Amino acid sequence: MAPLPGFSPEGLKECRQACETWLAQDAAARTVDEVAPAGLADLPAAARFAIEAGRLQALHKLPAAQRVKLCSLIDPSQQGEIDGADAELAGLAADLTCLKVKVGRHSVAEDIDKLRLIHDKLPSHVKLRLDANRAWTLEQAEQVCGSIPAQRIDYVEEPLLAGSCYRNWTSHLAVPFAWDETIREYPEADLHTPGLKALVIKPMLTGLARTLAWLETASAAQRQIVLSAAFESNLTLDLYARLCALWQLSGYQGLGTFDAWPVCLIEPLRSQSGHDQKPIISPTELTYLGRWL
């Protein structure tokens, strides 16, 4: 249960209170399958995800946490400096095939310079996913995305200003787009919109049942699902990997956020490489919050 500051409207205290209230309604239940899922929809998203994930793992045998294909991310702290991006690119693994680049934080000219640098530095097989965080007009999106060959861009995530219409996207750009915040704010969004390639879903911000519903809707519309992490611990990242196997998600996932964690909780991170040296905090070392019931 890990609400993401700045994105989740709820905090950890609110989530805990909501869970305590919900669990008290089923205080007589002796086993997890006797705890009714009714009423979960009223819980904050992070609390709802935690309970749904707990029930899923308790009631069903999930696939093991296998290595997932990750879309790497350039360090956001270096987005304003071309030299910084150059150094970051030099340190990326040689087998890099998918790279996420934050754009829209600076001027259109700076974004164009950044993309051209990346285009020149990385092999032609590396696909770029641009994340604009709703920073551009359609014309600005056309300028930036048109600065490098369209085939290098896998998609651009949330390119247009909030409330913008995507109806004319394919008339201006050859690259596809993806929705993230849009589907959380507008659940009725038309997934058949021309140019839409993928839905980027953060289960911690939507809940697990809602994530599965989007997966089914996206599959019917022949749109890709990309799971995106909200800086959760290794335990949840491994759960996401198990869900990728369960749901047969084969594309590059946005789960490469564990660099921010200095330690692993209880066990190592099994679904991603590069974190073998991080210390493991045992259960006895974790802070115990007491029984909730």
Rank of each mutant, 00 (worst) to 15 (best):
M1S: 13
M1Y: 06
A2L: 13
P9W: 02
G11Q: 10
C15H: 10
Q17G: 12
T21G: 10
L23Q: 07
Q25W: 09
A28T: 09
A29M: 02
R30P: 05
T31I: 12
A38E: 14
P44M: 00
P44Q: 06
A46M: 05
A47V: 07
R48S: 09
G54W: 07
L56W: 10
L62G: 02
Q66F: 09
R67K: 14
R67I: 11
R67E: 13
L70Y: 02
S72R: 15
L73M: 07
P76V: 01
Q78G: 13
G80Q: 12
E81M: 09
E81C: 15
A90G: 11
G91A: 10
L92D: 06
A94M: 04
L99I: 00
V101M: 02
V101G: 05
H106G: 08
A109F: 01
D113G: 03
D113T: 10
K114L: 15
K114P: 02
L115T: 03
L115S: 08
R116L: 12
H119S: 15
K121A: 14
P123S: 10
S124F: 08
H125S: 13
R134S: 05
E139G: 09
Q140A: 04
Q143Y: 09
Q143R: 13
Q143W: 08
C145G: 12
G146E: 02
R152E: 03
L160E: 02
L160I: 06
L161H: 15
A162R: 13
G163S: 08
C165H: 12
N168K: 14
W169Y: 08
T170A: 11
T170M: 10
A174N: 06
F177E: 01
W179K: 01
T182E: 15
R184C: 12
Y186K: 14
A189W: 09
H192Q: 14
P194F: 02
L196G: 07
L196M: 10
K197N: 03
A198P: 01
L199K: 01
V200K: 02
V200D: 01
K202F: 03
K202Y: 04
P203H: 08
T206Y: 11
L208A: 12
A209G: 13
A209R: 13
T211W: 00
L212C: 12
L215F: 12
L215V: 11
T217D: 14
T217Y: 11
A220Q: 12
Q224E: 15
Q224M: 11
N234V: 08
L239A: 06
Y240Q: 06
R242D: 04
L246P: 06
W247T: 07
L249N: 02
G251C: 08
G254I: 04
L255A: 08
G256M: 09
G256E: 14
G256T: 01
T257G: 02
T257E: 03
D259S: 14
P262R: 04
P262E: 01
V263C: 15
L265G: 04
L265V: 07
P268Q: 03
Q272D: 06
Q272C: 08
D276S: 15
I280S: 03
I281N: 04
S282D: 09
E285Y: 07
L286W: 07
T287N: 11
Y288A: 15
R291L: 10
W292G: 07
W292S: 06
